[in-house]
């Protein structure tokens, strides 16, 4: 996943909360919690970065935490909160 381009799903909206954010998917009506502010920055940054690793770096997530974040991102992917970008939109 680290080297792939991803993006937030089009029917997802984020609501900032003191602990991070709440993500709501209008299509499948799932509610998910992004439990750290850094994760929120990562998710919001996905679309503008060439790959997930760049989004993590841009959010200031240290390399040794990348695996933990990938686990969290996979959880979000399972609920269709984020999805792979099929077309390379951002260079």
């Amino acid at each position: 996943m680290l080297d792939e381009p991803w993006t937030m799903s089009p029917s997802v909206e984020l609501r900032p909360e003191p602990f991070g954010a709440l993500a709501y998917h209008f299509g499948n009506r799932k509610l998910t919690f992004l439990k750290r502010p850094e994760l929120v920055v990562v998710v919001q940054g996905l679309a503008d970065q060439p790959d997930v690793r760049s989004a993590l770096e841009q959010a200031g997530v240290p390399a040794h935490q990348h695996d933990a974040y990938v686990t969290a991102l996979r959880g979000l992917a399972a609920a269709d909160m984020i999805r792979p970008r099929t077309q390379e939109a951002a260079a």
């Binding site: 609501r15 900032p16 909360e17 003191p18 602990f19 709440l22 509610l31 919690f33 439990k35 502010p37």
Partner: peptide, 26 residues
């Protein structure tokens, strides 16, 4: 205040965070 500007300990569980309230209801 219950808004995003308040510092809260980040190591709280989600349930503990919820007990302190959210910016809007779920």
């Amino acid at each position: 205040t219950v808004n995003g500007t308040v510092d809260r300990p980040l190591d709280l569980s989600l349930v503990q965070q919820f007990e302190l309230g959210l910016d809007a209801p779920i």
